[in-house]
Design a binder for these strands. Structure first.
Length: 902
RNA sequence: GCGCGAUUAGCUCAGUGGUAGAGCGUCACAUUGACAUUGUGAAGGCCGGAGGUCCGAUCCCUCCAUCGCGCACCA
């Protein structure tokens, strides 16, 4: 044996050896006779690391714990499956990549466009994935890579769509107009759990509305921190038993708020606290979750006065278009001037901010997709909340440590409907298609082919704002560049046919795209722009001057415009062409290149707009996508659709993980064998995000629990108990540690001294300590090896020896500890036994015999010590897989410790 | 406001109804030994505070303090 244990050489070699042997795959183990075909299954899924970067110590701790369970199960003859995977982590990944791009190129995602931006995100995710996989292997995790999954791969896409459809059909997923958490900075909705509250100082104002009738004051003073939202008040709520205000309950008042007339009804609601503020609450249903709920109970109207950008939309000259903070100050001044403010006090307030972007959360009413958690469904007529609870109370899920069951129940009690749609680009697109004509949603529409309707590139006349009908104007340099960019985007759409207007600007556009994708365009004069007649070539200003009357009504269908053609004429020929080609190229992907006006009339018709209404104009070289479905819309009989542009909350797909990784919705052998999972091991910080959602999804889609046991580990902190973070500079990188001290030592440092649900303080010193243990173990083996007698060995007489009995006691204790999820105790016990008993005492004591004994005595002691060593290696293997396997290879070549029986 | 966790040696943490243990650190001695370091030994703790239950409490109960965390509220 080498005098020195070379960590890096050994660990790389050994992992490859395991992988090549195929024993990470339980089916191969059965094939090779290592596992009995009817053995009890043990299954666990890896909590998929986000593809946002690299592995950290938390991951390493998770891998260590899970690998112990998995290796222990495997060595105990169980049919053991541990599935690896990664998580696309929608918002997290998207914002990480966008931040990087902004920093490097000064562009945001809108500058790049959806397609190009997604391409970048995917490239980043791929790179990140590769790194993570390498790192996971470096830690020695015995995962079955043949079953690797990704929350955004094709198989999981099928799972997501099936889940969505099933839940929609059950009435659990609905589209609703409700107040959501709107992240102004990130421009998306987020769920309640993605909010972090920041404590800030703010002013609590007590004010009164002015009565509209006589300018006197509203009888009830109201306290608020958000004066700017009071434009949206539709009620004042007081506690039902509040004597002060009882006389007003049920009455409606027309009042003035900073110059805006509003109507408020005084209502009584239990949720109002008599002792807070004035005991009266101005109800702003559109901009507060709580107020929205009150409004629902009392059937109050709501008035939206803030938009997606956090700006005021209320028609009040003082604040219109202003940001909320500004509007608040303005309202305060106005009220003060009117003598309507009664009190101003400084208070501490929790401000809702978005976890990922740090932006302020503005509650806004929006049309979004939700999962109903309080709606009874299915045969049992139970709600999701009830099922999530019963999974733990009766369903057999045990959470360790137990105290987290309480935390879990508490969370369920406070759970609101889960908003699952996000306005970001990276993720599973909502599998809903809206009928272009009547907007009726269809889930998982079977789309057969696509049409892309594209506008030509810019011409000089466009630039000069000159009316351009049938005149042959070429596209200019800008237009050319626009078309080239568009052609790039269109090149991977599988376009079969290109049809274009025969006017030069479209012709050129179609030819550039056609060249890029290798298709010769077809030209059709019916797709031309409107014939502008007398308007042709005139500047917009000239038309306004010369034809003021027709210009005013220029979008009317029957407006004569330049005297040549009306929009009704255009609409007729464009639709005629469209319908004809639809028949002719059934099932083909078609690109239609045409003009702004033609697109407008076509789109207005397809969308079933009322006469005169026109869709917003399209940019040069931009294209709209129309999807054609196999089934006609049940509502209106049309078959043109467009998909919901939103994506799903990343936790929707991770919620399916325990069964989507096993092949669901297909009825696979894996699903049958390995579901429900034996254990779910993860950090306690994602019990709500993930654990709860997996239980939810499984209860609905699998009709039962997703796993039997939940083991929650703590957070890894630095030696002072702080979170590890880049800004603190206290990150201990698991890979650096593995290279320096070995993955084995790193693993052990994460196991010993940490128990379920408790945070672990880690320092490099600790890891070094366990490296010393590795060295010790190596030298124990080396010493025994050095004392190997010459020639044939006699039969071992070790059995029954007091040392062996002692080893068995250790084994029993260690086994019990592992079975009870007390990995730290097992590890400590082994550490102590190997170093302080085996090395310090037993070996020391036998040294004299090994030096001075008869050959028989020497052989006997050698056999005894070898038994002790190999027994220790087995027990240590789940904790320190590399070094134990390496030593085993020296003593028992041709066999593999990884699949030895425990 | 509700709830949870922690408080044990200088540091990091185990632990048990019968008046305490590990690792690291410190000190002394030994050792070129199988040991890129190891061995032997030592010092060091009224087990956060106050009550209670018990023959006996670090452990069980109650209250308090400090630190940390979660949830809710936040007009």
């Amino acid at each position: 044996m080498e005098p020195r244990y070379d960590v890096n050489e050994v660990e790389a070699r050994i992992y490859k050896m395991w992988e090549d042997a195929g024993w990470f795959d339980p089916e191969k183990c059965i094939e090779k006779g290592v596992t009995a075909p009817d053995a009890e299954p043990f299954s666990i899924v890896l909590p998929p690391p986000n593809v946002t970067g690299t592995l950290h110590m938390g991951h390493a701790a998770m891998l260590a714990v899970e690998d112990i369970m998995v290796r222990f199960a495997r060595m105990n003859g169980k049919r053991t499956l541990w599935i690896p995977g990664t998580d696309h982590a929608a918002i997290a990944t998207q914002s990480k990549v966008e931040k990087d791009i902004v920093k490097a190129e000064g562009k945001n995602r809108h500058d790049l466009g959806r397609e190009e931006f997604l391409k970048r995100v995917r490239a980043f995710a791929q790179e990140s994935h590769d790194t993570i996989v390498r790192q996971v292997k470096r830690m020695g995790a015995s995962l079955d890579w043949s079953r690797e999954a990704y929350t955004l791969d094709d198989k999981r896409e099928v799972a997501v769509r099936t889940a969505f459809k099933t839940m929609y059909d059950l009435g659990l997923i609905y589209r609703g107009h409700r107040v959501v958490n709107w992240d102004v900075k990130g421009q998306t909705t987020i769920s309640d759990d993605e909010i972090v509250y920041e404590e800030r100082k703010t002013k609590l104002y007590t004010f009164r509305y002015g009565l509209l009738a006589d300018g006197s004051k509203f009888p009830i003073p109201i306290a608020t921190t958000r004066l700017e939202t009071k434009f949206g008040d539709t009620a004042v709520a007081v506690h039902p038993s509040d004597e002060r205000y009882k006389q007003y309950v049920g009455k409606t008042f027309d009042v003035d708020y900073c110059g805006t007339p509003i109507t408020v009804k005084v209502i009584a609601d239990e949720s109002v606290e008599k002792d807070f503020g004035t005991g009266a609450l101005g109800v702003t249903p559109a901009h507060s979750m709580i107020d929205w709920e009150i409004a629902q109970r009392h059937e109050l109207p709501f008035k939206t006065i803030i938009d997606e950008f956090g700006k005021m939309t209320v028609e009040n000259p003082l604040v219109h278009g202003k940001k909320t903070a500004e509007a608040r100050a303005i309202a305060a001044d106005a009220l003060r001037a009117a003598g309507l403010i009664e009190k101003e006090e400084e208070i501490m307030q929790n401000v809702a901010t978005a976890e990922r972007t740090g932006g302020i959360i503005e509650p806004l009413p929006k049309l979004q997709w939700f999962i109903a958690v309080n709606k009874p469904f299915g045969e049992k007529q139970k709600t999701l909340k009830e099922l999530m609870k019963s999974g733990v109370t009766e369903g057999g899920i045990k959470i360790l440590p137990e105290r987290f069951e309480r935390v879990y129940f508490n969370w369920i009690d406070n759970l609101r409907d889960w908003c699952i749609s996000r306005q970001i680009w990276f993720g599973h697109q909502v599998p809903v298609w809206y009928c272009l004509h009547c907007q009726t949603p269809q889930i998982n529409a079977s789309i057969t082919n696509h049409w892309y309707v594209m506008r030509h590139g810019q011409t000089d006349w466009n630039k000069e704002e000159r009316y351009m009908g049938h005149r042959e104007i070429p596209i200019n340099e800008t237009g050319h560049a626009q078309v080239v960019t568009a052609a790039e985007k269109l090149s991977d759409k599988g376009i079969d046919v290109i049809i274009s207007s025969d006017l030069l600007r479209c012709k050129e556009t179609a030819e550039i795209v056609g060249k890029k994708i290798g298709i010769a365009p077809i030209f059709d004069e019916r797709l031309r722009e409107i014939d502008e007649g007398a308007w042709e070539g005139l500047l917009k200003s000239e038309v306004i001057e010369k034809y003021p009357d027709t210009w005013k009504t220029r979008t009317d269908l029957d407006n004569e415009r330049g005297g040549a053609e009306t929009w009704r004429d255009v609409s007729k020929r464009v639709h005629e062409a469209f319908n004809e080609y639809r028949q002719k190229y059934k099932g083909k992907n078609v690109l239609l290149v045409t003009h702004g006006g033609s697109i407008g009339t076509l789109e207005a018709g397809l969308r079933g707009f009322p006469e005169g209404k026109i869709p917003p104009g399209k940019d040069h070289a931009s294209f709209m996508e129309i999807e054609i479905a196999e089934d006609k819309c049940p509502q209106c009989g049309h078959d043109l659709y467009e998909q919901d542009p939103d994506t799903l909350d990343t936790w929707f797909s991770s919620g399916l993980w325990p069964f989507s990784t096993l092949g669901w919705p297909k009825k696979t052998k894996d699903l049958e064998t390995y579901f429900p999972n034996s254990v779910l091991e993860t950090g306690y910080d994602i019990i709500f995000f993930w654990v709860a959602r997996m239980i939810l999804m499984s209860e609905v889609l699998m009709g039962g629990i997703p796993f039997r046991r939940v083991y929650l580990h703590g957070l890894v902190r630095d030696d002072k108990g702080r979170k590890m973070s880049k800004s603190l500079g206290n990150i201990i990188d698991p890979l650096t540690m593995a290279d320096k001290y070995g993955a084995d030592a790193t693993r052990l440092s994460l196991i010993i001294g940490s128990s379920a649900g408790n945070d672990l303080k880690l320092s490099e010193d600790r890891i070094r300590g366990y490296r010393n243990f590795s060295t010790k173990l190596w030298n124990i083996a080396r010493f025994i090896q050095m004392n190997k007698p010459e020639g044939e060995l006699g039969a071992s007489t070790a059995d029954g020896h007091v040392y062996i009995k002692e080893l068995n006691d250790v084994k029993n204790a260690v086994t019990a500890h592992i079975e009870n999820f007390e990995f730290h105790l097992a590890g400590e016990k082994l550490y102590h036994y190997v170093w302080h008993r085996l090395a310090d005492e037993i070996i020391e004591q036998e040294k004299t015999v090994l030096r001075d004994g008869t050959p028989e005595e020497k052989a006997e002691r050698y056999a005894l010590l070898t038994s002790l060593l190999l027994g220790s290696l087995k027990m240590l293997h789940p904790f320190m897989p590399f070094i134990t396997e390496e030593i085993w290879q020296i003593f028992r070549p041709g066999t593999m410790l990884m699949v030895e029986r425990w």
